[in-house]
Write a protein that binds this DNA or RNA. Structure first.
Lengths: 366, 366
DNA sequence: ACAAGTATCCAAAACGTTTCGGTACCTCAA
DNA sequence: TTGAGGTACCGAAACGTTTTGGATACTTGT
């Protein structure tokens, strides 16, 4: 039915696809070819190249020479099939990653990729635009033995991906963790965002702010409640009342942060500080403040969470909480590779302390 | 020798890796299992699932039901080995991608990933920190049949990767292209950076600037000469002299741009505008101007190339030339997939016209 | 001269799929 | 009754490795 015609493109493509040396189509050279050229069996060839000691040194050298001459490269797929191991980890980009401004998933992915390559693992990346596609993508690459384990990012409450992977005993590590009321019975790496938001809110309270708005994230995300808790914790610790109408929800994108901040400031002019669940929305909030003719850090203080690169370079600089995203990617990948290799990771749940970064969007103490 | 012990981790890991339903280790169910359960041959099972019409409709339904019940997922590796096709494209992150501020490769990768997924291709990503490792990575995944084709980014003059891929007739597409004095005998997608830099320099000349510095990129990069040409073209068109001492080299990172701009301004105080080969260095140049107490856009105008997200949000906004990086990623991936599928792409060399984006770093006409 | 040991090699099976070339049976027309 | 044509099925080979379990020949010690 499907007959892919490998190398079909060689015929019609205008560009010269012919080797410079021989006018012949490239045919992969296999172990069999090397064996034939060396005059010995496939087994011996394999073992010679594999460094086993039951092959004569002279033979080995001959085989190695010939393999090099022929440009032999082992077929990775065949090797993986036989080894029942893909030496690959999988990562699915959620839709949010495709926002042009997204830094989070880019950084996470690079951290993952770096560690994977350092451990001779490849990284298989898939982009999916809907929740269902995403789950299907995990099923395909995981159950299809395409990868030895997967990394799950941006957890949802009651996350179907985690449920699936757990049910099937499939190796995985989560960047993020469950919502507070759910069990954390899987390996994860996360920043303690409750403590993080608490820090930045406490920082503003310390500056004398009493009316502090909060831009929250979509309720279906697992981390949303942690950050909201952090906000409430800080208020409670300072004996400030929690007001539900000081909390608005955004979708983590910059624009929604701008919208949310405009709403907050219009409805509650007494608000002098706004803390946002993430930096992108905080930057939008800064724009909102500026658009109504007020000054960030003077009239309204703004705080975020993440410390994406933009936070440092925005004007004024954004006070925020640093979440080491690249490093989280590294840790997640390391943990997954340990699990795949059958080594028990020392810790199966890593919670990183985030760090408050004070910049000019905080303004001065009132 | 190497005996990976798949599922070894299940024994020691503290976390419950046992299925909720059955207290049994997850064993992948194969076609053979389904066939046995359905009481027919592997062949028939395969063809039933494959939608071939030489199997009785009743049988097919029975097989499909059983396959679902058993949670059958085809082993992708086996399928790929037999089909001699990986349905995967490869991309190697160069070292530069791991700079925390890098936006270029992140965006390119996302564009690639998006198109790949839309065409049922997976994307294999590898990170390599040196030139040699990078070439080896290409050899391993390409000649090892791990991927059906690869994407090459950040081309060098006389790029060994391109030479290798061309010599082996391996499907590839380049993001970028050869240096001006080298042949472009391979499929590529690039922005016309010569025209782009020409535009921004001409823009400054139009504003009345006569002493314009240029921060160039490392000479081993293929695009360096194009951008330098663009600078010279614009000067020549306006009958302004080209002065070699107005040109300094950076390494594309922000810090080197700052360094370079400081040098330029110290050595040639008459310079009133600086154009940089890329945005990151231009942002560094803005910092340099500010650090010597001058104002960007007033005392010294700054221009960049790329239009990374930061360019819009910096203060003042950076005048630059927009290179649609995400879109280039999409085009590159589309072209590669066409080639892999044996369809001749309409164009094998796409040169995109970049767009001048004037922001406040240009200042006003003198 | 024989047994035991050692060095070197290899055929066959296995990994899980798809495809090739059948076979067996049934039905219909001549 | 025969042959043609169609339907439904399947065994075996193939993809390119690695591993298993010998086999062969040579050496060594008695």
């Amino acid at each position: 039915m499907r007959n892919p015609k490998r190398f079909g493109h060689l015929q019609d493509c205008k560009i010269a696809y012919f080797s410079l040396k021989e006018d012949v189509l490239f045919m992969p050279v296999t172990l069999k070819d090397v064996a034939a050229a060396a005059g010995c069996s496939v087994t011996t060839t394999s073992r010679a190249l594999g460094g086993y000691d039951d092959v004569n040194e002279q033979t080995r050298e001959r085989i190695i020479t010939i393999a090099k001459e022929l440009g032999y490269q082992p077929n990775v797929l065949a090797r993986q099939l036989q080894a029942q191991r893909a030496d690959t980890i999988g990562f699915v980009f959620p839709q949010a990653a495709h926002q042009p401004d997204d830094d989070f998933f880019s950084l996470l992915m690079k951290g993952i990729s770096y560690v994977a390559s350092n451990n001779q693992f490849d990284l298989l990346v898939s982009s999916q635009l809907t929740q269902e596609d995403e789950l299907r993508a995990y099923q395909r690459i995981a159950a299809g033995r395409r990868v030895d384990g997967v990394i799950v990012a941006r957890t949802l409450r009651n996350d179907p991906r985690i449920k699936y992977l757990k049910n099937n005993n499939y190796p995985f590590v989560v960047s993020g963790r469950s919502a507070p009321d759910e069990p954390d019975d899987f390996p994860y790496v996360d920043a303690d965002s409750q403590a993080g938001i608490r820090q930045v809110v406490a920082h503003f309270i310390g500056y004398g702010h009493e009316h502090i708005g909060f831009i929250s994230s979509p309720p279906e995300l697992a981390f949303t409640e942690y950050r909201l808790h952090g906000y409430r914790d800080a208020l409670a610790a300072a004996n400030l009342p929690y007001r539900a109408d000081y909390v608005v929800h955004g979708d983590l994108q910059r624009e929604s942060g701008q919208q949310a901040a405009e709403d907050l400031l219009r409805r509650h002019p007494q608000i002098t500080a706004i803390v946002s669940s993430n930096d992108a929305m905080a930057l939008g909030a800064m724009a909102a403040v500026q658009s109504i003719g007020k000054q960030v850090g003077v009239d309204v203080a703004i705080g975020g969470f993440d410390d994406i690169p933009l936070a440092r370079y925005s004007v004024p600089g954004l006070t925020t909480v640093r979440q080491p995203i690249y490093h989280i990617g590294e840790l997640v990948a390391e943990m997954l590779i340990q699990i795949i290799n059958g080594e028990a990771p020392e810790e199966t749940g890593i919670l990183l302390e985030p760090e408050l970064i004070v910049r000019d969007s905080s303004g001065q103490p009132l």
